[in-house]
Computed example of a mutant assay.
Amino acid sequence: MSRRLTPPERYQFAASVRSLLVPKHDPCGLLRDGELWLAVRSPAGPATLHLARVAGELVATGHGAGADWVVERADAIAGLRDDLRGFTELARRHPLVARLATTFSGVRMPATGQVFHRLLRAILEQKVTGTEAHRSYRKICRHLGEPAPGPVALVLPPDPAAVAARPYWEFHPLGVEQRRTQALLRAAQAAARLAECADSAEATRRMTALPGIGPWAAAEVVRTAFGDPDAVSVGDFHIPNTVAYALAGEPRGTDDRMLELLEPFRGHRGRVCDLLAMGGVTAPRYGPRMPVRSFARF
């Protein structure tokens, strides 16, 4: 099953889809040489999507039982359904945002429709360093995943039913302590209801109703699963400082101050945060960094 897509002018493929994979190595996906391979558990069954740039177009090819579903959604996964209407005018409200919006005008926000897979990663990323979280993510995917269809050696994201059936102590050797594991198990049990959500607002309500899942994790999920450009990761360790420094020259900021500074960009507040990250904007760092630990050794 294949489909040809026409991206917008100046479209930046790699920058648009890079957020779908954890850094360095993702067992469920591969991005290299202008091609993306992504394994998904679609409603129609296991599938692998291949996206490749060919003569100014994107060619989407599906493999597996869910090939039709994943190819039909390929434009959303590539970010081609991202709606930037009105953002140019909003971006002009701050010179730095306006400059970054021009520099990264070809970057689009993907919308995978895959809630549980992104929620798995968000739960693991809570209260630990990215290195710890991504290490656990890789171990869980390899431990519970199954071979994905297609010619590339990928694994399917863990089946929520398989996650929900595991006792919490089975995740300890994978580097996840009891608190995050319990949140993950609750999310797995609710995965079917989360998959039925019509939009990011409904998904946010249902996710944050689960103990152990707050607004930060919900925002991380809906930005990728629904392509929500307004989702702000409230509760993040770095983003409030980054926003305060970038938009007001203040080296430190709270969540309330961050939201105040982002208010002029309502409708695209999450997009502004992404632009600051892509532009390499960071607040000054004071004090020691959080240590990288291994809960598997505790």
Rank of each mutant, 00 (worst) to 15 (best):
H268W: 14
M290D: 09
H25N: 15
A191T: 02
E72Q: 14
W169Q: 07
R32M: 13
A209E: 03
G150E: 07
D83L: 03
R92H: 15
Y11C: 04
Y245K: 00
L174D: 12
A188T: 01
M109V: 13
L5M: 08
D75M: 05
A111P: 01
A283Y: 11
W69M: 04
F116A: 07
A101M: 06
G113M: 02
R166M: 13
G145T: 14
L49H: 14
A153S: 14
F295D: 12
G235R: 00
L20W: 11
M278W: 15
G56A: 05
A296M: 02
A65N: 01
S233Y: 00
A39D: 05
A198F: 03
P158G: 02
L262V: 10
A183L: 02
G212A: 03
A209Y: 05
W169H: 15
A192P: 00
G267C: 06
A76K: 08
R121W: 04
E72D: 15
M109W: 11
R53A: 06
V54C: 06
T61G: 02
E202L: 06
P264T: 07
A183F: 01
R121H: 08
V292K: 09
P211R: 07
G145F: 04
E220S: 14
I77H: 08
G66Y: 01
P43M: 06
G79W: 06
H117N: 10
E57N: 15
A122H: 04
G270N: 04
P158V: 13
E177F: 13
I123S: 01
P157K: 06
Y137E: 09
R3D: 01
L90H: 09
Q178T: 11
A78F: 09
D159M: 11
V22Q: 12
G267H: 03
A183C: 00
L51A: 01
E263L: 10
E170N: 11
R18F: 12
M278Y: 14
F226L: 02
R73Y: 01
P46A: 11
R121V: 14
A162Q: 07
L31F: 02
L84Y: 10
L36Q: 02
A164P: 05
G130D: 07
V71H: 05
T208A: 00
P147Y: 04
R297S: 12
A187T: 08
E263H: 13
F265R: 07
S105G: 15
E220F: 10
P158D: 08
T204R: 04
L174T: 06
L20I: 11
Q189G: 15
A277C: 12
K139C: 00
R293G: 09
E72V: 05
D230R: 08
A231S: 13
R108P: 03
E9F: 06
R138C: 09
L184R: 03
R223Y: 09
P147A: 11
A217D: 07
A218E: 01
